[in-house]
Nucleic acid binder design. Structure first.
Lengths: 234, 234
DNA sequence: AATCTCAGATTCATCAGATGATTGCTACGG
DNA sequence: CCGTAGCAATCATCTGATGAATCTGAGATT
């Protein structure tokens, strides 16, 4: 077991044991290194590893703190790993994304009247309106369209009310992977159809129609997957 | 932007650009540090961060290598983060788990006849048989029962044929979280019922009955969730 | 009394050099 | 042909020092 592992283990144990809680400050490097019986260099490597996982946050001059440990923090690391392997595994990643977003659409429809869901759905509507504006203009700004697409899907995931679900969706809908995908879709002239599908999904969600919301979201994402399959073949 | 961020960014960029591919060996610390214009200490912190994310793997005496970047590698980091936050978010985590495992059961049923799925299903059957043996004996070994439960759910996820799905299920079904959960369930005398539910799920999957497989898996995991809710109330 | 300013202390960030431990390779001997 | 011992390469770790960002509190100002 390496020194760094000892550091990671020691700190996670402190958190699991309740010795350290969300937002707490860690001892200074010198003291913590001494407590774990490692050099400051090794301690820093371990802390850096936990920082990469979103568990710790070090601020120069201020100290090192345990993060809020919210589910949204598992987005960064996971999203990055997804990006790196997305090249070869675009299809399986997207299948899981479809499963999760279909569920999210259903959940969002069920609680469409809740206050929290309503504001998220308003954000989704705003994203669609924005996209509609872009499409109506003569010169289509694909970058902005992509932003609106991302905002729409994120808002819908938020409306589902499960932060873990929202975080996973965010991570799987990788930024750069979708960038490549969108490039292809807009080239294929699918902009308008995508917009119509989004509208249909949101209408069903707002109406509280769980089944329609699920089916329409699934259909929308299956369209994307079909495009993905055709791209792979080519 | 910190030196470490520069390291992480530089290495991920090399991978995304195809300069480094899965299995490739990185330059030695001294050279890479010089190339990125950082000290060896900072380089090591960055490498350690990517190691924590499962992207790199350093072997003393041998060198540092890019991992296979397989989806299964996103398990370690994610699983750890899930464990850390599981305390406060057990229910939302389990809801997502239920969604994914329900989908997995359906996919497994659809391809029950495939060679790869068959061997995974055989493993699931073996796990159930093992659990049956434990239950039949007078003195029930709960630890072994938990192992069989984990093996069953893992085998079923594998049978679905989507490595990303399997990896996420593995990560969400946190080891220690489930340990606590199981303790409670066995205390409540739910061992036998769990076994029956597992049998029912597997029968449907092997029979290729997608709908039954999905419903039974969902029902099984809902039972667990109900227990989770009751625990939270108490 | 409340607020602003700034110097000092605290803490993380980074570097440099040296030593130990592990692995892989190579030449030698059987 | 095979096994083994030595050697080189490489990561692992430690130590000590310096820089940069942040926080704290005393004093000045309004």
């Amino acid at each position: 077991m390496s020194r760094t592992d000892r550091v990671v283990d020691g700190i996670t144990r402190m958190i699991l044991d309740g010795e350290l809680r969300a937002g707490d400050r860690l001892p200074v490097e010198k003291d913590l290194a001494a407590a774990l019986d490692v050099s400051r260099g090794s301690l820093r490597e371990g802390v850096r590893a936990l920082e990469a996982l979103g568990v710790l946050e070090a601020r120069q001059g201020a100290g090192t703190y345990v993060t809020s440990l919210d589910p949204s923090l598992l987005v960064g690391p996971l999203g990055m790993v997804v990006e790196l392997q997305a090249a070869g595994h675009a299809l399986p990643v997207h299948e899981v994304r479809r499963t999760l977003e279909t569920e999210a659409a259903g959940l969002a429809a069920r609680r469409a009247d809740d206050a929290a869901a309503s504001s998220a759905l308003a954000a989704a509507r705003a994203a669609l309106d924005d996209a509609a504006g872009v499409l109506a203009s003569g010169d289509v700004d694909h970058e902005r369209l992509l932003e609106a697409d991302i905002a729409f899907h994120r808002a819908l995931a938020d409306a589902a009310g499960n932060p873990v679900l929202a975080a996973l969706v965010e991570a799987l809908a990788g930024r750069t992977a979708r960038h490549r995908l969108w490039r292809g879709l807009t080239d294929a002239g699918a902009d308008a159809r995508t917009q119509r599908e989004h509208e249909a999904v949101l209408d069903a969600v707002v109406a509280g129609d769980v089944e329609r919301a699920r089916v329409r979201m699934a259909a929308h994402l299956l369209e994307v997957e079909d495009f993905l399959r055709r791209s792979d073949d080519a």
